[in-house]
């Protein structure tokens, strides 16, 4: 345990050649990573017209259904539109690849074989790689050259619980917890530099690696879900039932408009 006097004296060279370089390298790598990710991000792929049409077909029926309870359309017009949509969904004329053949309809598309879904997954993997590789290199560098270095002394006392956090890589049970080892300094930077990046690069930066660390495969996990949601023929079939329901709910706003107007103008009989 340290007495009232300073028990350890740190060479200022350690400050100049270890503490500052580690911090500086980590900041620069973060900034570099931000720009590499920007380069790697391929622009979202433009969809073909048939694909857009397929996606928006559902919106059509949703708009129709949303108005059903207070519909601006008379029943005959409403039913015509509704019937048209139901027929189109039934025959599958809105599907991207045209009406499905009866035998090949069963299996949903496998996201791994669909090149569009692959792209999404690859993009996630690429950012992962850009995050992992430099961090591994830096950690290796610190471990190789500066293992067991004590870099700074915190200006405030801490309890023993912080020992594993601040003195990683130094196996001394007796040293004051205020001393911070090189590996711990690396981790403190790793999690703590986000604020600085936000200051330098703006809020939507991709320099912060700790965020990716928290959800390591989120990007990759989101892609297959996207792939499975694309089974439009099933969605269309379900939408036919919804259209039937809404047809039952249909009320024309103008149904009793005469009496409403007469009442408003004081001519109610």
């Amino acid at each position: 345990m340290s007495g009232p006097a300073v028990s350890l004296y740190l060479d200022p060279q350690i400050r100049d050649w270890v503490l500052f370089p580690i911090t500086l390298v980590m900041i620069l790598v973060g900034i570099l990573r931000h720009y590499v990710v920007l380069l790697l991000q391929s622009p979202p792929k433009k969809q073909s017209r048939a694909a857009i049409r397929e996606q928006r077909a559902l919106v059509r029926s949703q708009i129709l259904r949303a108005t059903a309870a207070n519909s601006p359309l008379p029943p005959s017009h409403y039913n015509a539109v509704s019937q048209h949509l139901a027929d189109a969904f039934n025959t599958g004329s809105y599907l991207k690849d045209g009406p499905a053949k009866s035998d090949a309809a069963a299996a949903p598309p496998n996201p791994l074989t669909d090149p569009a879904a692959m792209d999404g997954m690859m993009a996630g993997m690429k950012t992962q790689m850009v995050m992992m590789v430099p961090q591994m290199v830096i950690m290796g560098w610190i471990n190789f050259f500066f293992q067991g270095f004590v870099l700074i002394k915190l200006p405030f006392p801490l309890t023993l619980g912080f020992k594993s956090m601040l003195q990683r890589g130094i196996e001394t049970p007796d040293m004051d917890v205020r001393w911070v080892s090189s590996l711990s300094w690396y981790f403190l930077n790793f999690f703590g530099l986000n604020g600085l990046y936000r200051l330098i690069l703006g809020g939507e930066n991709s320099a912060d690696s700790s965020r990716d660390m928290a959800t390591p495969f989120a990007a990759a996990a989101a892609a297959p879900q996207l792939g499975q949601a694309q089974d439009f023929s099933k969605l269309f079939k379900a939408e036919i039932d919804n259209l039937e329901f809404s047809k039952g709910l249909h009320v024309w706003v103008a149904d009793d408009v005469e009496t409403r107007i007469l009442k408003k103008y004081g001519r109610a009989t």
Partner: peptide
Amino acid sequence: LALKMYLQVVDMTD
């Protein structure tokens, strides 16, 4: 139909 729609406009705009 026209009559109903005209009345609807009246109802919406007065």
